[in-house]
Nucleic acid binder design. Structure first.
Length: 301
DNA sequence: ATCCAGGAACTGT
DNA sequence: ACAGTTCATGGA
């Protein structure tokens, strides 16, 4: 992690192939987003440090990301945690050169890496949030998924008011583990999703499911451990591996957004079959997650 | 109104 | 292993 601690603020220095504006565009794709805010081009994110909440005020250029602490000064340890969080959130450990090398030779990806140069997979570092968000998004349109997340967070998450505006933390697994299905049904979750989410919250609260444990395994091991959990199928496992566990081989091949993006990019009369997608993705080995993320990007704005 | 949405479990063969 | 069915509700 390449960063500087200036006490009043911190600064992170990504390697090349980084474009803050592109990343910010992704973060601003929904007005219903509750786990971060963008106001006047400035990104605000509330994170949970050791016991205490930390509000980050983030700005960036193509060379660096700067984060201030509008709540006041914070400890050196908290600043380190903030730096680590942002580093992971923006996937700054990744060297995109490998991806761009294979993408330059790929008919589908070539225009995308040109248009979205420097875009990184904006992650969800918190495992419970990543899994829960993926489950919320199963088989419903994205707008409604954001509505569910907003209700869920505003009902069960912690809130901090700053300058008269609320900043939310995604709910803790411990809190959700104590709920009943009806508590989520009231927010228009389906019974099925409510069961899945509470079940996973219980497993995580009991320490039976942790990010650290999953990260120890290979891609295949992560995938099979995740899909062994009720509510997590192949799509959800790949999504979580892509956004939280950060394995670049994650490939949610059944994703509807992916299908639509391919149809659009290739001007196909209808969505490609899984077999056709496998064919297209032959050259993406080792970078499937980035290929998918760039294709998703092509669907908006 | 009708179709479908960043799927998964369940059921029957 | 594989295909069909059910869950459920909002957006376009």
């Amino acid at each position: 992690m390449n960063w500087a601690d200036h006490s009043a603020y911190i600064e992170l220095y990504p390697k090349e192939e980084f474009n803050y504006e592109e990343c910010l565009l992704f973060l601003g794709r929904s007005d219903l987003e509750v786990t971060h805010q963008i106001r006047d081009g400035i990104l605000y994110k509330l994170i949970k440090g050791d016991e205490e909440c930390l509000l980050l005020k983030i700005t960036g250029t193509s060379q660096s990301i700067k984060a201030e602490f509008p709540l006041g000064s914070c400890s050196a340890k908290a600043r380190q945690e903030a730096a680590k969080y942002i580093w992971e959130w923006f996937d700054l450990d990744r060297d995109l050169e490998g991806f761009y090398n294979i993408a330059r030779k790929d008919k589908i990806l070539q225009p995308l890496i040109q248009n979205y140069y420097g875009l990184r997979i904006m992650g969800i570092p918190n495992l419970f949030e990543a899994i829960t968000w993926a489950i919320m998004g199963q088989q419903i349109n994205l707008t409604f998924a954001y509505t569910l997340k907003k209700r869920f967070t505003e009902q069960f998450g912690e809130c901090l008011i700053f300058e008269g505006e609320p900043f939310w933390l995604f709910p803790e697994a411990e809190k959700i583990a104590a709920l009943r299905v009806e508590d989520l049904r009231m927010l228009q979750f389906t019974s099925r999703k409510a069961e899945y989410i509470i079940g996973i919250a219980k497993a995580m609260a009991a320490g039976e499911l942790t990010k650290e444990h999953l990260l120890q395994g290979s891609f295949e091991q992560m995938h099979s451990k995740l899909t062994a959990i009720r509510g997590i199928g192949s799509w959800t496992a790949d999504y979580v591996i892509m956004k939280c566990l950060r394995h670049p081989n994650a490939f949610p091949i059944a994703d509807v957004g992916l299908h639509n993006a391919l149809k659009l990019q290739l001007a196909l009369p209808s969505k490609p079959s899984l077999e056709e997608i496998r064919e297209m993705a032959m050259g993406w080995e080792g970078w499937q997650a980035y290929a998918v993320f760039y294709l998703w990007r092509s669907l908006y704005v």
